[in-house]
Amino acid sequence: MELTLLNKFDQDNIIMGKLDELINWSRANSQWYFQFGLACCAIEMMAAAAPRHDLERFGAMPRATPRQSDVMIVAGTVSLKMAERVKRLYEQMADPKYVISMGSCSNSGGPYWQYGYHVLKGVDQIIPVDIYVPGCPPRPEALLQGLLELRKKIREETPLRKTVNE
């Protein structure tokens, strides 16, 4: 939609389109993420927000509180002691909300799957996840790609109509 919007603005200053597309475009391009860094992946998330792999040029701003954020990036191992807090923080976010699971530990338990008596084997056991970013830790560019994939996913939503899948 970005290219067509720009093109249309060059020719005309009236654009015709669907309201669905406008809402999806605005939600996709300004994802304020909830910096939920738990372990090593948090350092790579910090590096993704740092000057070299700038996340803010994609519209993603870090927020400290779940009430003001759209996306929750679960970066790092979720332990059983922390699992209830993750669930509570997820419930404190306002709709529409998305979850990106970053790193092997929150995807599926990571290297601690075998003898980890206190490790949650994947954060999708307690909250619904939209995008999984693999790696241990994933490079900041991988997290960027995850955010762009989330954008593609948001563009296909239909916020005004209820469809069979919802």
């Binding site: 059983l80 209830e84 599926s108 075998q114 008596y117 206190h118 084997k121 056991q125 307690i126």
Partner: peptide, 21 residues
């Protein structure tokens, strides 16, 4: 007490399955 050699991992904790599926 988990680090004892005869510790047996529990099945669930607060409803969450501990063992990997």
């Amino acid at each position: 007490h988990p680090l004892r050699k005869d510790y047996v991992q529990a099945e669930t904790y607060h409803g969450i399955t501990i063992k990997k599926d």
